[in-house]
Design a protein around this nucleic acid. Structure first.
Lengths: 189, 189
DNA sequence: GAAAATATTTACCAAATGGTAAAAAGTAAA
DNA sequence: TTTACTTTTTACCATTTGGTAAATATTTTC
């Protein structure tokens, strides 16, 4: 729980009363590997904060291929935030890549916090902006670099994740086949 | 000027007094093709709103290749906003792709508006979030699709831009060489 | 621990893309 | 209009990546 509060306090000041309120609304849930946190075609019902494990955002392109859009690791928010806030159907799945433990907030509790804590919207707005910028920065090399360079930049951006994620997910994140990625791994060794 | 105010009003309500204040701070500038709005290694001094023309964000990767990161067309904000707000050096160039006409705000005037209009930060925060989400959405196919599909999705996302932008810029945006793009154009015909 | 299921590696060949260079087309300047 | 300059297309071949399939390795289940 401390990790969560610390994370938030990076983006704005809150007093103990306020952080206590936030913590009082949080519930802890666990997800098994491959379970969904939220699904394409459904309205996201929760905001999560990942305490343990790895999740990914993914979707199916028009060729039916499963594309991993991005990964999230420990101590980061897990939410299709735009769709959650507007309570409209999502176009991506959020899936546990490993067994996970999360803090979650229902829409009602999340709104309650926003209505009680002055400045909460500004803080969450900053957090979202930050996450979006990070996503863009991480995905940029995936367009302009060759496959080997992409893989190396993935390792750089997600140190320690390589050994926790199936090859196929990493390959689809990098925009290559798993055979290609396997070949690249071999060449790097 | 009306287009600019209309754009802003999509994201929040402002009264006439407030929009008058904003307009009073705006200056109009022109950029010739290939001129920079802001440069990598320098602190961005202005926020812009593009009235006419096309601009691009670009940078040089570690192989010295010039990479177009994204395009902006009429009636959109032109700003390395994160770097502008923090007044730190940018890592990308913003360059006119065609002759352009823009409304611009200095840092001081932008701050004055923020200090005067309650809710201005919320509005600009929403606008930025929106732009970032659009950028992510537009760039997603550039990772997972083949070159022809990327080109088609570019045309879809930026209708009318194809004929106003040099082939080389489009190619670097798509992550392919201009020879490949030329070949793809030929195959599509 | 053995069997089954899943994930990864390897191989082979086809297809797509890159690199170099030159030709053609289009634009701007004299 | 002619010349110079820039952009786009084309060609050729090397390299990278994809698709299919099978072999090996790893993990899970019983």
């Amino acid at each position: 729980m401390k990790a969560f509060i610390d994370y938030i306090l990076q983006f704005g000041n809150l007093n103990t009363q306020q952080t206590d309120l936030i913590m009082s609304k949080a519930k802890t849930i666990e997800l098994h590997k491959d379970e969904y946190f939220s699904e394409a075609g459904k309205i996201p019902r929760q905001v999560g904060f990942l305490l343990e494990g790895v999740v990914r955002f993914c979707y199916y392109n028009n060729k039916g291929q499963e594309i991993t859009h991005h990964f999230i690791d420990e101590n980061n928010f897990v939410s299709d935030q735009q769709k959650f806030e507007a309570q409209v159907v999502a176009s991506e799945y959020i899936q546990a890549v490993t067994d996970c433990k999360l803090l979650v907030f229902s829409k009602k509790d999340w709104d309650d916090i926003g209505n009680t804590i002055v400045g909460w919207d500004a803080i969450t707005g900053l957090i979202l902006k930050n996450c979006l910028l990070k996503t863009i920065e991480r995905r940029s090399p995936l367009v302009s670099e060759d496959a080997t360079t992409r893989y190396l930049s993935f390792i750089e951006h997600f140190p320690g994740l390589v050994n926790r994620i199936p090859l196929s997910h990493i390959a689809s994140y990098l925009g290559i086949t798993q055979q290609s990625l396997s070949r690249i791994r071999k060449n790097i060794r």
